[in-house]
Write a protein that binds this DNA or RNA. Structure first.
Ligand code: MN
Ligand code: MN
Ligand code: ZN
Ligand code: ZN
Lengths: 153, 153
DNA sequence: TTGCTATTGCGTCTCATTCTCAATATGAGC
DNA sequence: GCTCATATTGAGAATGAGACGCAATAGCAA
């Protein structure tokens, strides 16, 4: 008896989210559901304004404050990751089958390219062992100009 | 006929700075000299408030606006580098004989450990070649807890 | 010394993010 | 389904880093 399901992925995330809400005595509100839905329906790197705009376009009215608050929960539950794109505001991406990747950012047009490598993880282990640090997270971005922005200069 | 010189390093930097000012039609003001002096008299990672405080302690009154403006010139002239320490504001360090190093930051006490590696540079070259990017700069930090902050938890 | 103009300091502005609080919605227990 | 304690929301104010405008001032070349 299956519904007109969108994707198993979405179902999984919704499950994780419900679990998280349960464990923290948080309520399953319309706003949180809609934000989760929107975040997992796209696969790009977005900021708060973009998310707000997308929700408004769908007539899913959610306040800016609630978006900030919900994103904090999504970060805490590891469903969403924060990304530093060298801008003056935070960007986010959902964390579904996109583990361990880094970013290449074009400083001219803003284009973002993802790449994976084991190098970063190895280096982190090595360095943390040497200095007796317990790693929590890392942040790595390469900023530069993409191919098309180079030719048009 | 040598003066009571503080260090050759300082002299070198002052030279670079004067060159930079000359090339850009900028004046050699008291404020700029004092900021340069203060920045090169310490070897840590500082933010604007800290720099302001240190200058005030020495009765070298410089406004916040001038510090921001001068730091921009110091960045532009490559005498100072900006460092991302995972906080919500910019940190800086002077760039004298401290090329190509990365940072390990304790999220508990704020301690910063520097480390050098050729790995990052190699990786950057490799990735940029693959995606036809022209690299401008990179940012890499490992956030975690230092040894003493681990034991006191 | 003069005069042009780069620079400063102060206050104001912007922009992202957080906070406050009264009104509202959620969900457990009945 | 209804009640009620309380988690949550939205609107707007508050905050904090940093940029900016402008009148007063200081560098510096002539
Ligand atoms: Mn990504
Ligand atoms: Mn450093
Ligand atoms: Zn580009
Ligand atoms: Zn520590």
């Amino acid at each position: 008896m299956r519904r007109n399901s969108k994707s198993t992925a979405e179902t999984v995330e919704r499950g994780h989210f419900n679990d998280y809400l349960g464990r923290h005595n948080l309520r399953r509100t319309q706003e949180r559901i809609r934000i989760l839905q929107e975040v997992f329906s796209t696969h790009d790197h977005f900021d708060v304004e973009t998310l707000l705009f997308r929700l408004r376009r769908k007539k899913h009215l959610v306040s800016r404050a609630t978006i900030y608050r919900t994103l904090k929960h999504l970060l805490d539950s590891k469903l969403v990751r924060q990304v530093d794109l060298g801008r003056n505001r935070a960007f986010y991406e959902h964390a579904l089958g996109r583990e361990n990747h880094e970013h290449l950012v074009c400083v001219a047009c803003g284009k973002v390219v993802e790449f994976s490598t084991v190098t970063i993880q190895k280096l982190q282990n090595f360095v943390c062992e040497e200095f007796n640090f317990r790693p929590v997270r890392h942040s790595y971005q390469i900023l530069g100009t993409c191919e098309s922005c180079q030719s048009s200069s």
